[in-house]
Design a protein around this nucleic acid. Structure first.
Lengths: 140, 140
DNA sequence: GGTATTCTGATAAGAATAGTAAGAATTAAA
DNA sequence: TTTAATTCTTACTATTCTTATCAGAATACC
């Protein structure tokens, strides 16, 4: 039960992209990496997933970078994490022999409850929430 | 973000021990393994942790096995999972350089919210809840 | 044309997970 | 008192997952 570095990096990167998009400037991978302390080459890979998920738009070539493709209030932590980690699975039981009777599986019960709770939390955390809480007006 | 096999097995094993304890019989590792489809040798290791955490009592020697050491209503999923997985950590940020300013770390924010939510769910799932929901009166 | 950047794919080291195996210690029962 | 069943302990192993690193191709601004 842990948050992967992938998810952590993706949240941080999206926060930076969101901040800069609201200032009408794009930000490139090197800047994000430096601001948030993320290995650049690794981040490059992650951002591709964020792009494929439709969360950011890329601007290629010199002076390129990334901007949000939607409003910060319309992108939540669930989408961001799912973009880089794939659909949250949880639970080996699903479909296994011991749990074909999955409506009698205690582990499955726990997994379902957890999933619902986690989804609820992550769906309610938007990038706008991050900006309102963490971004100072005077920062770039 | 996933439930480990360890946690899954521990929940299932504790459920079986709880059921049997309420019938005043102890159950051994082989029986648990067979009933729940868990590799026996692996389960042996896990149960030792459950014992060290004070959740079960062992009866050694022939006709030995395990019984709950507390009432089923007083043992919850959080304790069970923590017993086999150690304290839930989540989040690489904690204490890292990029997040020494951890009150400005968006990933840390998410981790805190998740942790609280997960704890809340797991604390409210007791073994008695499992028994009431899943155990038929006519089963041994 | 040169440079900055995104994009793509291959590779690799290390950690974690899940499991296996062998046998020592303990105790009920024959 | 022996035997058999069981917990307990330790060491090992195979596989997958995570977290990168690296090299270079494609793209677009100046």
């Amino acid at each position: 039960m842990k948050i992967s570095a992938k998810a952590e990096y993706a949240l941080k990167a999206m926060y930076e992209i969101a901040r800069h998009t609201q200032k009408n400037i794009n930000i490139n991978v090197s800047e994000i990496a430096q601001l948030q302390g993320i290995p650049k080459a690794y981040l490059e890979q992650l951002i591709v997933h964020l792009k494929k998920a439709g969360l950011v738009r890329s601007i290629r070539g010199a002076k390129g970078g990334y901007v949000l493709s939607r409003n910060a209030g319309e992108i939540n932590a669930n989408e961001i994490i799912e973009a880089v980690e794939g659909p949250m699975d949880l639970g080996h039981c699903i479909g296994s022999k011991a749990c074909s009777k999955s409506d009698k599986c205690v582990a499955n019960d726990v997994v379902q409850q957890l999933r619902q709770s986690i989804d609820n939390v992550l769906n309610n955390i938007t990038l706008q929430y991050f900006i309102d809480k963490y971004s100072n007006k005077e920062d770039i």
